[in-house]
Design a protein around this nucleic acid. Sequence first.
RNA 1: GGGCGAAUAGCUCAGUUGGUUAGAGCGCCUGCCUUACACGCAGGAAGUCGGGGGUUCGAGUCCCUCUUCGCCCACCA
Length: 944
Amino acid sequence: MALPDRFDPTAESKIYERWLDAGCFHADAKRSTRIGGDREPFTIVIPPPNVTAILHLGHALDDVTQDVIIRWARMKQQETLWVPGTDHAGIATQNVIEKQLATEGKTRFDLGRDAFVKRTEAFVAETGGVILRQLRAIGASADWSRTAYTLSPELSKAVREAFVRLYEDGLIYRGHRVIHWCPRCLTSLSDEEAEFEEETGAIYHVAYATSAGGGSREAGGTPSGASSSLQPPASQLVVATTRPETMLGDVAVAVNPADDRYTSLIGKTVRLPILDIEIPIVADDYADPAFGTGVVKITPAHDANDFEVGKRHNLPMPVVIDEHGVMNEGADARGRVPDFVRGEDRFAARKKIVKALQESGALVKTEQHQHNVRHCYRCDTVVEPRLSDQWFVKMAPLAKPALEGLRTGALRILPQKWEGVYTHWLENIRDWNISRQLWWGHRIPVWYCKDCDPPQNIHVSRDDLTACPACGGPVKQDEDVLDTWFSSWLWPLTTLGWPDEKSDDFRAFYPTDVLVSGPDIIFFWVSRMIMAGYRFVGRTPYHTVLLHGMARDTQHRKMSKSLGNGVDPLEVTRRYGADAMRWTLISGMGLGADIILDPNDLEKTFATGRNFVTKLWNIGRFLLEKAGTAAVRPVADLAPASLQRADHWILWRLDVAIAECDAALGPLRPVTPLDNADRVHWTESERYSGMRLNDLAETARRFVWNELADWYVEAIKSRLADGGPDAEVARAVLVHVFDAALRLLHPVVPFVTEAIWQQLPSHVEDTYLASALWPTRRASAADRGAHEFDLVRETVSALRQIRAEYAVPPGTSIAAVIVATNGTANVGRVFAEEATTFERLSRAELRVEQRAPGGAAAHAVLTGGTSLVVPLAGLVDVQKECTRLQSELTSLEKQLASLESRLGNEKFVSRAPADVVEGERRKLGEWSARRQQLREKVQALCGA
RNA sequence: GGGCGAAUAGCUCAGUUGGUUAGAGCGCCUGCCUUACACGCAGGAAGUCGGGGGUUCGAGUCCCUCUUCGCCCACCA
């Protein structure tokens, strides 16, 4: 039956269903060699997308990359597991629900905590996980029976286990300090979640009048009595600040103790403008003499550095900005927020303060200022440093083994350039603020007893507490939840059953193999998972971290919703099919390199993939129509003598393609034992090899299109049409090599390859390409027949070149003569015999002669000194041919000269590797022969 | 302010330890609807590998330097 001339992408979902029905993606722990089975396990855990997310191109990029690796491993007959799942995404999800509420004119506080959480749960249950269904549309071959969720009861239990263990080990502590606070999300953020953005702001120089006399150090925020000093009239200290509104919380100004300009003032006081109170001048190294005036105002409650200075000098810490970013008197701040700014937003207050300073003459000058301001990574609000109590994880002890793991090669990072980023971050790691003032997330497993005295009033527990374990009195659980990343850093552990280390899944599949991610979450996630792996089970969670690039638009901007420059992968899938998208992404993305796509021209952007899928489909169509579906003999059963040159050639090219694909993908895992059989490390030679998926794609494409379709298929058309035993040989070889090509291509374009493979004559019912065997190459090398076919190709190309160059009309025959010199007449016979296959295309008559015909002729010099000559009678401009020949001769002579000088160079001959020198010698011979022929040609045609 | 990366055909990119005459896709030009494919076939044009210096028999590849982009980190108010 006739197949349509294009692959129908709507068939993709049906193919996916069949894979599911056949259980192709299901992994069986029992089969893992780690628990007595006979297949090596190969595992990837998906970077869990936010449960409320919808698929965007970044996900597609990430997940297709993983799918290619997973499908490859599956075909290598590994017990292959790809764990899917979602992240509850604390802030992000809470924001979604709060936005919903806002449209109803409500806030979460109107609902109350329980109702809010219930509503969020309902929302997640109803619409959450959409992205997982979308992943099926792009072909993700995950084991859906193991779908995980960071807020599931199982994972929540594991999160508690981790918290309690760290607490018991003294690695979790409660700290009172200045943290990053988002006044919109109303929660604290980790250092990583507060992202720097460069902004143009202003820097204000404000004069603080120095009081005479020694202000008392503990003067702090309270106006220090009368400065009854006899010092000369007030001079002033000028401080520079980008945030004048915080001056209401100033408790001191600091100068560097080594700064001669100010040493005499240390211990004295200045008068804070507006509030008109005395604050001390302290000496602290934090003040940089080289910056600004060398004097810095100290606002301990609203700046992390000032906080440290305040602690060192035992200064009070008045809070003048509340959690909403509004000016209000907080702790220790009585009388510090004047009426004219009270209740004002911090930015509005800034203007008013500046104005007031201006009016009072305290504002010395204002300058434009480039600086980096931290923003909330979720809502982009400017982060407010805020003094509060938070839970922290002590990270330095966790970082050590993670650094060691990379050093010893227990894990590798691809591409290598990210190693430095990883190492630098870990070596300078800071403690991790894990509490969030949210309602959506894992509630911190800490209970406070009102009746016991601190610190005995803190109880950390794996189980919910209803009464104080110490005194039996009532307890109250910490109001905060844990940072989302506190559950995702356990992902490779928890999705496999941890803390139950005896579970089949954990024993069978941990450690996993490869972690695929974008470099933007090296700190948030990748590194922390490694730390958790070492901390909780003593082993790295994976041996390979593969970091791909980002999707960007043609202006190299990151694709994002807010910029509106995104490409919707589902739209692409609808229009061109998932395979077309997968192909375009994978083949266009070098290892770790960004991929540039044009969101305004999907047609052009995805043409590569779409065209390739169609080509593949049509090769399949040809095969089915011309070669039929009757069973074929295995290639191994064919008598070698029955194979034609073209058969030998394509089998050889297939071997080369397989070898190159294997090299592109590299080893599945490191193989060298480190200290025992369970622990392996990458050797230097393996360490940066493999995972070049674009190379896999390119190699396979070249084979199936430029070699199989362009040459082999053309070469056997007449053989197939002739029928008989030789047609059977050609059929068998065609089916064999195309089958193998489909296997090589399947990881990248799973749908179309499966659709075709199912119909191949070699197909065994109820088997799937998705779990078929990865091809291996034959032991034998290229034989003579294969090389001879290369000469046939060369001849045909030369004929076509001549035909095109002289505009020989299609359908017009040209007579070509193979002139064989150097005793290669037999090669000439090969051309005549085999190239007739292509005759219909080239409309050439081939003859073999031992001498060149006289008169004007177009020629092509072939490998081995043979020449193809086409009489030009009536066809051509002799002048033109003459010019062409001469320029060809000139360039050949130039290249020969440089080749000769190289070979004449003693150092080259003695220092270059033998094979290089030998190659150059061989080339010299070939080129010399070619030059001789060209010269003769020129002489015959052009006279002189 | 530190660190890292990039610069190769009109566009987007490959180019593994230095070693034939630097490749692909898209676009472009010419000719073809040749019975699998016009989302195709055949042929073609197009690159002083960002500039300059150096090492080497040999450099797109290694070193230095400059220029231009990009990313990450960082407590300079």
